[in-house]
Amino acid sequence: MFLGASLAILVTMCLAILRAVLGPSVYDRILAANMFGTKTVLFLAVLSFLSGRPDFLDLALAYALINFVSVIAVLQFVERRARNRAKEDQASDAVKGGAQ
């Protein structure tokens, strides 16, 4: 039972990697990375019962927290970068318009 569940979660992780590679926009890639992290937590939880080592649950707990923080940080970074680029484009357009 644990084996079946862990195999299904592994297949889903592969699908998430596929979406992260294909993903047309940066948000698709972030979504895929987030899903990969959540599935890793579930996989570690199932694996700890499959192999009979409850130590893995601590790793899953740490991974759940780190995954959330990293997704929020990357989102902030992407948003700020897109905004700065738009602002730079506007500024350079204004300079060109003034020169003409």
Binding site: M1, G4, A5, A8, V11, L15, R19, L31, L42
Partner: peptide
Amino acid sequence: WICLLGGALVVLIGGIGLV
């Protein structure tokens, strides 16, 4: 077992939907 297999199914369907 029902919970685990149902969860695995939901996770798999979500992965297919993501792609």
